[in-house]
Amino acid sequence: MNMLIILLLVVFIVLIFGGILLSIEVAMRLGHRLLEKSHDLEHEIGERHRAQLRAETSLGEKELLLREIHHRVKNNMQIVSSLLRLQSRQQDDPVTKAILDDSRSRISAMALVHENLYQPDNLAKVSLRPYIQELAMNLFASYNIEPSRIVLITDVEPISINIETATPCGLIINELVTNSLKYAFPGDRLGEIRIDFKRLADGVSLQLRVADNGVGLPADLDVRRGKSLGLQLVVNLVENQLQGELLVERGQGVAFLVTFKEIGYEKRI
């Protein structure tokens, strides 16, 4: 009987020790695998961190590149503008001079879009309020207009639009304001030019109004059939480029009402 108890005890002790040894072995293996996994995880975290850094650097580089391209576009337009002015200064013929100066003012209106494009930390949109103000002031300065003789009034809502829309829009304003400055106030006639820009109630349509209280358009002038390149540009940019609508109000002076929507960006590459 005693022998049996001793045998059972021995078997029991052997089983316990075996169990303990097995547990230790299993625990060690588990610990080892845990260590391996945690190493893997650390490695992956490091890898992801580096990938994120690479992505951030690449994004930064791309933004820098984009700024550099806008800068170069602006710089090249400035060179074209300077070139036209050099040529204009050499001309004695006032008609030729006027053609060169008109071309220069059109280039400047386009260059100004690029300036306003990358200034306020937004590389895709043009802020209209500063753009329109500066565009109009530049025209007043280049035609030597005393602001006390012709008053400029602008009422522009804080709207930003993409460059595809802003460029034709700027050229339209350039032509209409130029027309008013050149023809609406002959002699020393006093008056005002108004530029309004707003978003309509539908939330998507935009409306530009350029008006003056000058002598008005000649009664027999058909805006769509006129010979002046300025008005041809206005009609075509509104109807073909912006797919918008042009309305001419003849009353006291003249008002051009342009209604359009922002052009969608067409991928070219």
Partner: peptide, 11 residues
């Protein structure tokens, strides 16, 4: 360093 711009400024 842009010759054209420099001459425009000169004028």
């Amino acid at each position: 360093d842009e010759w054209i711009i420099a001459n425009d400024i000169k004028d």
